[in-house]
């Protein structure tokens, strides 16, 4: 079931005009910002399908940038996000892409600052609901419905066990988990949706586990 809550249907409260092309777009932008963990200095935003054809009319561009600035769907600053980003010196470029995608409302966002970089693909599936389908080249299915931890690790035996052992010790229940890798023995990504928020001390402990490269968490 993609839609779990009645508030996915009666909601969100949002700035118009489109739940998929405005509110959903803002949520994809904000998810990117959350995963990046800080304000970027530049962003490249590629729009596909219906997003590419109608983004001007729906304010999809404005909404994604609003999300990158960490604004919620009902934040009225969304309408001014392009000029706010400019004031902050964030360099933003838009591309309309003709490539065929699985979902008509697809955005690919690359962003970074002097030291870090992140690339993500998000789809807006209707009524403001979104899914993250790709992160730094890894396929995933992240709904944002639950708290989650994203663990970049080396593809070695014991890496997954070292993480789940720590979660078990702190009585954190795993609701869903997926593992993907680019190639055998290369970098891999664990996506773990959990029932409880993971606090900073547990996060620190996870960082110290075997074969772990990087951890990002999404709180509820």
């Amino acid at each position: 079931m993609k839609y779990k809550s009645v508030f996915d249907i009666i909601g969100p409260v949002m700035i118009g005009p489109s739940s998929s092309h405005t509110a959903g777009a803002a949520r994809i932008g904000r998810a990117t910002r959350t995963l990046f963990g800080k304000e970027p200095t530049w962003a490249e935003i590629h729009l596909y399908g219906s997003f590419a054809k109608t983004y001007k009319g729906h304010g999809t561009d404005v909404a994604i940038v609003g999300g990158l600035l960490d604004y919620n769907t009902d934040d009225t600053r969304i309408s001014d996000s392009l000029s706010i980003a400019k004031q902050k010196g964030i360099n933003i470029q838009f591309f309309q892409d003709d490539a065929a995608t699985d979902h008509p409302n697809t955005a690919r966002i690359k962003m970074g600052d002097g030291t870090d970089q992140l690339e993500l693909v998000g789809i807006s599936i209707g009524g403001g609901k979104v899914e993250i389908t790709e992160l730094n080249g890894f396929e995933l299915h992240l709904s944002g419905n639950h708290p989650a931890i994203l663990v970049m690790h080396n593809d070695r035996f014991g890496a997954i066990a070292s993480v789940t052992k720590i979660l078990a010790k702190h009585e954190i229940n795993i609701g869903r988990m997926e593992v993907s890798r680019k190639d055998v023995g290369q970098e891999a990504l664990m996506v773990i949706e959990v029932d409880q928020n993971v606090d900073d001390s547990i996060e620190k402990e996870l960082r110290g586990a075997d074969h772990i490269l990087h951890i990002t968490k999404i709180v509820d």
């Binding site: 009666i10 909601g11 700035i15 118009g16 209707g126």
Partner: peptide, 21 residues
């Protein structure tokens, strides 16, 4: 009309169809 004017609405189930309910 409020939605088209980029005002605040509640999507039911979407923004474009927010008037019916």
């Amino acid at each position: 009309e409020v939605n088209a004017a980029m005002g605040t609405i509640c999507a039911t189930p979407t923004a474009g169809s927010a008037g019916c309910v």
